[in-house]
Nucleic acid binder design. Structure first.
Lengths: 201, 201
DNA sequence: CCCGTACCGATACGCTCGCATCGGAAAAAG
DNA sequence: CTTTTTCCGATGCGAGCGTATCGGTACGGG
Protein backbone atom coordinates (compact mmCIF):
# COMPACT_ATOMS: atom_id res chain seq x y z
CA UNK A 1 0.00 0.00 0.00
CA UNK A 2 1.36 3.38 -0.91
CA UNK A 3 1.77 6.34 1.26
CA UNK A 4 -1.03 7.09 3.69
CA UNK A 5 -2.16 10.33 5.25
CA UNK A 6 -4.09 10.89 8.43
CA UNK A 7 -7.31 12.20 6.93
CA UNK A 8 -9.00 12.80 10.23
CA UNK A 9 -6.30 15.02 11.58
CA UNK A 10 -6.34 16.92 8.34
CA UNK A 11 -10.08 17.38 8.52
CA UNK A 12 -9.75 18.77 11.99
CA UNK A 13 -7.11 21.20 10.81
CA UNK A 14 -9.39 22.34 8.00
CA UNK A 15 -12.28 22.81 10.40
CA UNK A 16 -10.06 24.96 12.59
CA UNK A 17 -9.12 27.05 9.59
CA UNK A 18 -12.78 27.47 8.65
CA UNK A 19 -13.51 28.69 12.16
CA UNK A 20 -10.65 31.15 12.15
CA UNK A 21 -11.73 32.64 8.84
CA UNK A 22 -15.38 32.76 9.85
CA UNK A 23 -14.44 34.61 12.97
CA UNK A 24 -12.57 37.22 10.97
CA UNK A 25 -14.86 37.86 8.06
CA UNK A 26 -18.08 35.96 8.46
CA UNK A 27 -19.12 32.92 6.51
CA UNK A 28 -18.85 34.67 3.18
CA UNK A 29 -15.22 35.37 3.94
CA UNK A 30 -14.51 31.65 3.84
CA UNK A 31 -13.10 30.58 0.49
CA UNK A 32 -11.50 27.27 -0.33
CA UNK A 33 -8.27 29.00 -1.19
CA UNK A 34 -8.04 30.87 2.07
CA UNK A 35 -8.90 27.74 3.99
CA UNK A 36 -6.05 25.95 2.28
CA UNK A 37 -3.63 28.73 3.17
CA UNK A 38 -4.77 28.83 6.79
CA UNK A 39 -4.54 25.08 7.15
CA UNK A 40 -1.08 25.19 5.52
CA UNK A 41 -2.03 22.69 2.85
CA UNK A 42 -2.79 22.97 -0.80
CA UNK A 43 -6.14 23.65 -2.37
CA UNK A 44 -6.07 20.19 -3.88
CA UNK A 45 -5.72 18.62 -0.47
CA UNK A 46 -8.75 20.48 0.79
CA UNK A 47 -10.73 19.23 -2.14
CA UNK A 48 -9.59 15.71 -1.46
CA UNK A 49 -10.92 15.85 2.08
CA UNK A 50 -14.26 17.41 1.18
CA UNK A 51 -15.87 16.97 -2.15
CA UNK A 52 -17.73 20.27 -2.00
CA UNK A 53 -17.58 23.42 0.02
CA UNK A 54 -20.89 22.70 1.68
CA UNK A 55 -19.61 19.36 2.90
CA UNK A 56 -16.70 21.15 4.48
CA UNK A 57 -18.91 23.69 6.20
CA UNK A 58 -21.18 20.99 7.56
CA UNK A 59 -18.22 19.23 9.07
CA UNK A 60 -17.03 22.50 10.58
CA UNK A 61 -20.34 23.37 12.18
CA UNK A 62 -20.54 19.93 13.67
CA UNK A 63 -17.10 20.42 15.12
CA UNK A 64 -18.06 23.75 16.67
CA UNK A 65 -21.26 22.40 18.12
CA UNK A 66 -19.46 19.47 19.58
CA UNK A 67 -16.80 21.70 21.06
CA UNK A 68 -19.35 23.90 22.80
CA UNK A 69 -21.33 21.05 24.33
CA UNK A 70 -18.09 19.34 25.28
CA UNK A 71 -16.97 22.48 27.05
CA UNK A 72 -20.24 22.64 28.94
CA UNK A 73 -19.94 19.03 29.99
CA UNK A 74 -16.35 19.56 31.04
CA UNK A 75 -17.39 22.52 33.14
CA UNK A 76 -19.95 20.36 34.86
CA UNK A 77 -17.66 17.46 35.65
CA UNK A 78 -14.95 19.88 36.74
CA UNK A 79 -17.08 21.14 39.63
CA UNK A 80 -19.10 18.11 40.65
CA UNK A 81 -19.39 18.79 44.33
CA UNK A 82 -21.91 21.61 43.99
CA UNK A 83 -25.64 21.55 43.72
CA UNK A 84 -27.52 21.07 40.51
CA UNK A 85 -28.67 24.65 40.71
CA UNK A 86 -25.18 26.13 40.63
CA UNK A 87 -24.19 23.62 38.02
CA UNK A 88 -26.94 24.93 35.79
CA UNK A 89 -25.65 28.43 36.36
CA UNK A 90 -22.23 27.40 35.16
CA UNK A 91 -23.64 25.59 32.18
CA UNK A 92 -25.76 28.53 31.11
CA UNK A 93 -22.79 30.83 31.53
CA UNK A 94 -20.81 28.66 29.16
CA UNK A 95 -23.54 28.50 26.56
CA UNK A 96 -24.02 32.23 26.53
CA UNK A 97 -20.76 32.84 24.72
CA UNK A 98 -20.45 36.15 26.40
CA UNK A 99 -16.97 36.19 27.75
CA UNK A 100 -14.31 37.71 25.56
CA UNK A 101 -12.38 34.49 25.19
CA UNK A 102 -15.39 32.86 23.56
CA UNK A 103 -16.26 35.79 21.36
CA UNK A 104 -14.75 33.95 18.45
CA UNK A 105 -16.98 30.94 18.90
CA UNK A 106 -19.95 33.25 19.25
CA UNK A 107 -19.25 34.87 15.91
CA UNK A 108 -18.90 31.48 14.29
CA UNK A 109 -22.10 30.20 15.79
CA UNK A 110 -24.05 33.25 14.74
CA UNK A 111 -22.73 33.03 11.21
CA UNK A 112 -23.82 29.41 10.91
CA UNK A 113 -27.14 30.23 12.53
CA UNK A 114 -27.94 32.84 9.91
CA UNK A 115 -26.91 30.51 7.13
CA UNK A 116 -29.05 27.76 8.60
CA UNK A 117 -32.12 29.95 8.19
CA UNK A 118 -31.83 29.42 4.44
CA UNK A 119 -30.10 26.03 4.32
CA UNK A 120 -32.12 23.09 5.66
CA UNK A 121 -29.23 20.61 5.99
CA UNK A 122 -27.25 23.10 8.04
CA UNK A 123 -30.31 23.74 10.16
CA UNK A 124 -30.49 20.03 10.88
CA UNK A 125 -26.98 19.96 12.27
CA UNK A 126 -27.66 23.00 14.42
CA UNK A 127 -30.81 21.44 15.81
CA UNK A 128 -28.78 18.48 16.99
CA UNK A 129 -26.60 20.78 19.05
CA UNK A 130 -29.54 22.69 20.44
CA UNK A 131 -31.36 19.53 21.40
CA UNK A 132 -28.33 18.25 23.28
CA UNK A 133 -27.99 21.44 25.27
CA UNK A 134 -31.68 21.69 26.02
CA UNK A 135 -31.73 18.13 27.24
CA UNK A 136 -28.77 18.84 29.47
CA UNK A 137 -30.41 21.92 30.91
CA UNK A 138 -33.67 20.11 31.50
CA UNK A 139 -31.93 17.30 33.36
CA UNK A 140 -30.15 19.74 35.64
CA UNK A 141 -33.35 21.61 36.39
CA UNK A 142 -35.15 18.39 37.16
CA UNK A 143 -32.36 17.33 39.44
CA UNK A 144 -32.46 20.63 41.27
CA UNK A 145 -36.23 20.39 41.61
CA UNK A 146 -35.87 16.90 43.07
CA UNK A 147 -33.39 18.38 45.53
CA UNK A 148 -36.00 20.87 46.61
CA UNK A 149 -34.74 23.98 44.81
CA UNK A 150 -37.31 25.39 42.44
CA UNK A 151 -39.88 22.67 42.78
CA UNK A 152 -42.90 23.12 40.59
CA UNK A 153 -40.97 24.28 37.57
CA UNK A 154 -41.59 22.83 34.12
CA UNK A 155 -38.06 21.60 33.32
CA UNK A 156 -38.48 21.51 29.56
CA UNK A 157 -39.91 24.98 29.35
CA UNK A 158 -37.33 26.42 31.67
CA UNK A 159 -34.58 24.77 29.64
CA UNK A 160 -35.98 26.30 26.46
CA UNK A 161 -36.17 29.67 28.12
CA UNK A 162 -32.59 29.58 29.30
CA UNK A 163 -31.28 28.39 25.97
CA UNK A 164 -33.09 31.08 24.03
CA UNK A 165 -32.05 33.74 26.51
CA UNK A 166 -28.42 32.65 26.30
CA UNK A 167 -28.55 32.76 22.53
CA UNK A 168 -30.12 36.18 22.45
CA UNK A 169 -27.63 37.56 24.94
CA UNK A 170 -24.76 36.20 22.90
CA UNK A 171 -26.00 37.95 19.80
CA UNK A 172 -26.62 41.24 21.52
CA UNK A 173 -23.21 41.30 23.12
CA UNK A 174 -21.74 40.58 19.72
CA UNK A 175 -23.30 43.59 18.04
CA UNK A 176 -22.41 45.73 21.00
CA UNK A 177 -25.87 46.45 22.29
CA UNK A 178 -25.08 44.85 25.63
CA UNK A 179 -21.84 44.76 27.52
CA UNK A 180 -20.48 41.49 28.77
CA UNK A 181 -21.27 42.69 32.26
CA UNK A 182 -24.90 43.49 31.52
CA UNK A 183 -25.47 40.14 29.86
CA UNK A 184 -24.10 38.23 32.83
CA UNK A 185 -26.27 40.26 35.15
CA UNK A 186 -29.38 39.46 33.12
CA UNK A 187 -28.55 35.78 33.12
CA UNK A 188 -27.87 35.67 36.85
CA UNK A 189 -31.07 37.50 37.64
CA UNK A 190 -33.06 35.12 35.51
CA UNK A 191 -31.56 32.12 37.28
CA UNK A 192 -32.19 33.65 40.67
CA UNK A 193 -35.81 34.28 39.80
CA UNK A 194 -36.16 30.76 38.52
CA UNK A 195 -35.18 29.23 41.80
CA UNK A 196 -37.10 31.80 43.80
CA UNK A 197 -40.56 31.19 42.47
CA UNK A 198 -42.28 28.62 40.28
CA UNK A 199 -43.98 29.99 37.23
CA UNK A 200 -46.99 29.07 35.20
CA UNK A 201 -50.69 29.06 35.81
CA UNK B 1 -35.46 71.58 -15.51
CA UNK B 2 -35.13 68.18 -17.13
CA UNK B 3 -36.94 65.08 -16.14
CA UNK B 4 -37.11 64.27 -12.47
CA UNK B 5 -37.52 60.95 -10.70
CA UNK B 6 -38.82 60.25 -7.22
CA UNK B 7 -35.63 58.98 -5.67
CA UNK B 8 -37.17 58.21 -2.32
CA UNK B 9 -39.85 55.98 -3.73
CA UNK B 10 -37.21 54.19 -5.76
CA UNK B 11 -35.05 53.67 -2.72
CA UNK B 12 -37.96 52.13 -0.91
CA UNK B 13 -38.61 49.80 -3.81
CA UNK B 14 -34.98 48.76 -3.80
CA UNK B 15 -35.06 48.12 -0.07
CA UNK B 16 -38.09 45.92 -0.54
CA UNK B 17 -36.27 43.97 -3.23
CA UNK B 18 -33.28 43.52 -0.93
CA UNK B 19 -35.55 42.16 1.76
CA UNK B 20 -37.27 39.75 -0.58
CA UNK B 21 -33.96 38.38 -1.83
CA UNK B 22 -32.50 38.15 1.67
CA UNK B 23 -35.49 36.20 2.79
CA UNK B 24 -35.03 33.71 0.00
CA UNK B 25 -31.30 33.12 -0.04
CA UNK B 26 -29.67 34.96 2.82
CA UNK B 27 -27.58 38.06 2.53
CA UNK B 28 -25.08 36.44 0.20
CA UNK B 29 -27.90 35.79 -2.22
CA UNK B 30 -28.33 39.51 -2.71
CA UNK B 31 -26.60 40.78 -5.82
CA UNK B 32 -27.02 44.13 -7.47
CA UNK B 33 -28.29 42.48 -10.61
CA UNK B 34 -30.96 40.48 -8.83
CA UNK B 35 -32.01 43.52 -6.85
CA UNK B 36 -32.46 45.43 -10.08
CA UNK B 37 -34.60 42.65 -11.54
CA UNK B 38 -36.74 42.39 -8.41
CA UNK B 39 -37.24 46.13 -8.22
CA UNK B 40 -38.11 46.14 -11.94
CA UNK B 41 -35.50 48.73 -12.78
CA UNK B 42 -32.13 48.57 -14.45
CA UNK B 43 -28.81 47.91 -12.80
CA UNK B 44 -27.75 51.44 -13.69
CA UNK B 45 -30.67 52.89 -11.78
CA UNK B 46 -29.72 50.91 -8.67
CA UNK B 47 -26.20 52.24 -8.88
CA UNK B 48 -27.53 55.76 -9.23
CA UNK B 49 -29.49 55.47 -6.01
CA UNK B 50 -26.71 53.87 -3.98
CA UNK B 51 -23.07 54.43 -4.75
CA UNK B 52 -21.99 51.06 -3.34
CA UNK B 53 -23.62 47.84 -2.33
CA UNK B 54 -22.88 48.43 1.33
CA UNK B 55 -24.69 51.74 1.21
CA UNK B 56 -27.71 49.94 -0.19
CA UNK B 57 -27.64 47.29 2.52
CA UNK B 58 -27.36 49.89 5.26
CA UNK B 59 -30.42 51.64 3.92
CA UNK B 60 -32.28 48.35 3.78
CA UNK B 61 -31.46 47.36 7.35
CA UNK B 62 -32.57 50.74 8.55
CA UNK B 63 -35.83 50.27 6.71
CA UNK B 64 -36.39 46.85 8.28
CA UNK B 65 -35.58 48.08 11.77
CA UNK B 66 -37.89 51.01 11.34
CA UNK B 67 -40.66 48.77 10.08
CA UNK B 68 -40.42 46.48 13.08
CA UNK B 69 -40.44 49.22 15.69
CA UNK B 70 -43.22 50.96 13.80
CA UNK B 71 -45.25 47.76 13.90
CA UNK B 72 -44.70 47.48 17.63
CA UNK B 73 -45.79 51.06 18.19
CA UNK B 74 -48.80 50.53 15.98
CA UNK B 75 -49.79 47.50 17.99
CA UNK B 76 -49.59 49.55 21.15
CA UNK B 77 -51.68 52.45 19.94
CA UNK B 78 -54.16 50.06 18.39
CA UNK B 79 -55.15 48.67 21.78
CA UNK B 80 -54.75 51.60 24.15
CA UNK B 81 -57.42 50.76 26.65
CA UNK B 82 -55.56 47.94 28.30
CA UNK B 83 -53.02 47.91 31.05
CA UNK B 84 -49.33 48.48 30.56
CA UNK B 85 -48.71 44.86 31.46
CA UNK B 86 -50.77 43.42 28.62
CA UNK B 87 -49.39 46.08 26.31
CA UNK B 88 -45.92 44.81 27.04
CA UNK B 89 -47.10 41.32 26.26
CA UNK B 90 -48.30 42.43 22.87
CA UNK B 91 -45.09 44.35 22.19
CA UNK B 92 -42.87 41.42 23.09
CA UNK B 93 -45.00 39.16 20.96
CA UNK B 94 -44.42 41.43 18.00
CA UNK B 95 -40.69 41.66 18.55
CA UNK B 96 -40.29 37.93 18.78
CA UNK B 97 -40.91 37.44 15.07
CA UNK B 98 -42.34 34.07 15.74
CA UNK B 99 -45.55 34.01 13.83
CA UNK B 100 -45.46 32.63 10.36
CA UNK B 101 -46.42 35.89 8.71
CA UNK B 102 -43.29 37.50 10.12
CA UNK B 103 -40.97 34.64 9.34
CA UNK B 104 -39.63 36.64 6.41
CA UNK B 105 -38.69 39.59 8.57
CA UNK B 106 -37.08 37.22 11.03
CA UNK B 107 -34.85 35.73 8.37
CA UNK B 108 -33.85 39.18 7.20
CA UNK B 109 -33.08 40.35 10.70
CA UNK B 110 -30.98 37.30 11.47
CA UNK B 111 -29.03 37.68 8.25
CA UNK B 112 -28.19 41.28 9.07
CA UNK B 113 -27.39 40.34 12.64
CA UNK B 114 -24.78 37.84 11.56
CA UNK B 115 -23.29 40.29 9.12
CA UNK B 116 -23.16 42.94 11.82
CA UNK B 117 -20.88 40.71 13.87
CA UNK B 118 -18.15 41.40 11.34
CA UNK B 119 -19.20 44.80 10.04
CA UNK B 120 -19.06 47.65 12.56
CA UNK B 121 -21.15 50.16 10.58
CA UNK B 122 -23.94 47.65 10.21
CA UNK B 123 -23.69 46.88 13.91
CA UNK B 124 -24.23 50.54 14.63
CA UNK B 125 -27.49 50.65 12.74
CA UNK B 126 -28.70 47.52 14.49
CA UNK B 127 -27.87 48.97 17.87
CA UNK B 128 -30.11 51.90 17.11
CA UNK B 129 -33.04 49.58 16.59
CA UNK B 130 -32.27 47.56 19.68
CA UNK B 131 -31.97 50.66 21.82
CA UNK B 132 -35.34 51.92 20.65
CA UNK B 133 -37.05 48.66 21.50
CA UNK B 134 -35.34 48.32 24.86
CA UNK B 135 -36.36 51.85 25.78
CA UNK B 136 -39.91 51.10 24.79
CA UNK B 137 -39.98 47.95 26.87
CA UNK B 138 -38.45 49.68 29.85
CA UNK B 139 -41.04 52.44 29.73
CA UNK B 140 -43.89 49.95 29.66
CA UNK B 141 -42.47 48.00 32.57
CA UNK B 142 -42.01 51.14 34.57
CA UNK B 143 -45.56 52.18 33.83
CA UNK B 144 -46.87 48.81 34.92
CA UNK B 145 -44.82 48.98 38.08
CA UNK B 146 -46.26 52.40 38.83
CA UNK B 147 -49.69 50.88 38.39
CA UNK B 148 -48.85 48.30 40.98
CA UNK B 149 -48.18 45.28 38.77
CA UNK B 150 -44.71 43.93 39.27
CA UNK B 151 -43.44 46.59 41.60
CA UNK B 152 -39.84 46.18 42.62
CA UNK B 153 -38.63 45.16 39.19
CA UNK B 154 -35.58 46.71 37.59
CA UNK B 155 -37.15 48.02 34.37
CA UNK B 156 -33.93 48.26 32.39
CA UNK B 157 -32.83 44.77 33.26
CA UNK B 158 -36.24 43.28 32.58
CA UNK B 159 -36.35 45.06 29.25
CA UNK B 160 -32.95 43.64 28.32
CA UNK B 161 -34.09 40.19 29.38
CA UNK B 162 -37.24 40.30 27.31
CA UNK B 163 -35.45 41.64 24.26
CA UNK B 164 -32.74 38.98 24.38
CA UNK B 165 -35.29 36.25 24.99
CA UNK B 166 -37.39 37.41 22.06
CA UNK B 167 -34.35 37.45 19.83
CA UNK B 168 -33.26 34.00 20.88
CA UNK B 169 -36.73 32.57 20.42
CA UNK B 170 -36.92 34.06 16.95
CA UNK B 171 -33.68 32.40 15.95
CA UNK B 172 -34.60 29.03 17.38
CA UNK B 173 -37.96 28.98 15.69
CA UNK B 174 -36.21 29.87 12.46
CA UNK B 175 -33.88 26.88 12.54
CA UNK B 176 -36.73 24.64 13.59
CA UNK B 177 -35.57 23.83 17.08
CA UNK B 178 -38.70 25.31 18.57
CA UNK B 179 -42.20 25.40 17.21
CA UNK B 180 -44.09 28.63 17.03
CA UNK B 181 -46.33 27.29 19.76
CA UNK B 182 -43.47 26.46 22.14
CA UNK B 183 -41.88 29.85 21.67
CA UNK B 184 -45.09 31.66 22.51
CA UNK B 185 -45.52 29.52 25.57
CA UNK B 186 -42.04 30.34 26.77
CA UNK B 187 -42.62 34.03 26.26
CA UNK B 188 -45.97 33.99 28.04
CA UNK B 189 -44.57 32.08 30.98
CA UNK B 190 -41.72 34.52 31.28
CA UNK B 191 -44.09 37.48 31.31
CA UNK B 192 -46.32 35.80 33.86
CA UNK B 193 -43.39 35.14 36.12
CA UNK B 194 -42.23 38.71 35.74
CA UNK B 195 -45.45 40.14 37.06
CA UNK B 196 -45.78 37.47 39.71
CA UNK B 197 -42.62 38.05 41.61
CA UNK B 198 -39.88 40.70 41.68
CA UNK B 199 -36.39 39.44 41.07
CA UNK B 200 -32.99 40.50 42.26
CA UNK B 201 -30.93 39.84 45.33
C1' DC C 1 15.80 -2.22 -7.08
C1' DC C 2 11.64 -0.89 -9.00
C1' DC C 3 7.03 -0.56 -9.72
C1' DG C 4 2.30 0.48 -8.77
C1' DT C 5 -0.53 3.34 -6.47
C1' DA C 6 -2.35 6.88 -3.47
C1' DC C 7 -1.64 11.56 -2.91
C1' DC C 8 -0.43 16.30 -4.01
C1' DG C 9 0.03 20.89 -6.10
C1' DA C 10 -0.60 23.68 -9.96
C1' DT C 11 -3.25 25.20 -13.47
C1' DA C 12 -7.41 25.90 -16.29
C1' DC C 13 -12.33 26.75 -16.87
C1' DG C 14 -16.71 28.70 -16.58
C1' DC C 15 -19.19 31.70 -14.06
C1' DT C 16 -20.74 35.67 -11.36
C1' DC C 17 -19.66 39.48 -8.80
C1' DG C 18 -19.28 44.82 -7.92
C1' DC C 19 -18.19 48.67 -10.33
C1' DA C 20 -17.17 52.00 -14.27
C1' DT C 21 -18.37 53.87 -18.71
C1' DC C 22 -20.98 55.82 -22.50
C1' DG C 23 -24.38 56.71 -26.12
C1' DG C 24 -29.00 57.85 -26.35
C1' DA C 25 -33.83 58.80 -24.64
C1' DA C 26 -36.83 62.03 -22.44
C1' DA C 27 -38.51 66.25 -20.70
C1' DA C 28 -38.47 71.22 -19.40
C1' DA C 29 -36.93 75.94 -21.21
C1' DG C 30 -36.48 79.13 -24.96
C1' DC D 1 -38.60 73.04 -32.99
C1' DT D 2 -34.31 73.32 -30.89
C1' DT D 3 -31.46 73.21 -27.02
C1' DT D 4 -29.95 71.67 -22.66
C1' DT D 5 -29.86 68.96 -18.81
C1' DT D 6 -30.85 64.94 -16.31
C1' DC D 7 -31.33 60.22 -16.13
C1' DC D 8 -31.32 55.47 -17.89
C1' DG D 9 -29.94 50.94 -19.67
C1' DA D 10 -26.65 48.20 -21.97
C1' DT D 11 -22.05 46.71 -22.16
C1' DG D 12 -17.26 45.97 -20.59
C1' DC D 13 -13.74 44.98 -17.20
C1' DG D 14 -10.95 42.92 -13.73
C1' DA D 15 -11.20 40.03 -9.88
C1' DG D 16 -12.47 36.19 -7.33
C1' DC D 17 -15.22 32.23 -6.78
C1' DG D 18 -16.01 26.77 -6.75
C1' DT D 19 -14.78 22.99 -9.29
C1' DA D 20 -12.35 19.74 -12.56
C1' DT D 21 -8.20 17.84 -14.31
C1' DC D 22 -3.56 16.10 -14.86
C1' DG D 23 1.41 15.34 -14.59
C1' DG D 24 4.61 14.69 -10.93
C1' DT D 25 6.04 12.68 -6.44
C1' DA D 26 6.95 9.77 -2.74
C1' DC D 27 6.16 5.74 -0.34
C1' DG D 28 5.31 0.61 0.67
C1' DG D 29 5.32 -4.09 -1.20
C1' DG D 30 7.52 -7.47 -4.22
Amino acid sequence: MPRQVDQEERRRRIADAVCALTEEGGLEGVTLRDVAVRAAISLGAVQRCFRTKEEMLLFAVEAVGGRITARVRARLTASPAQSAATALGHAAGEVALVRAEHRAEARIWLAFLAQAAVSPPLAGHLRTGYAALQGLFARLIEEAAAGGTGAGLDPEREARTLLALADGLTAQVLVGHLTERAAEEVLDAQLARMWAGPSGP
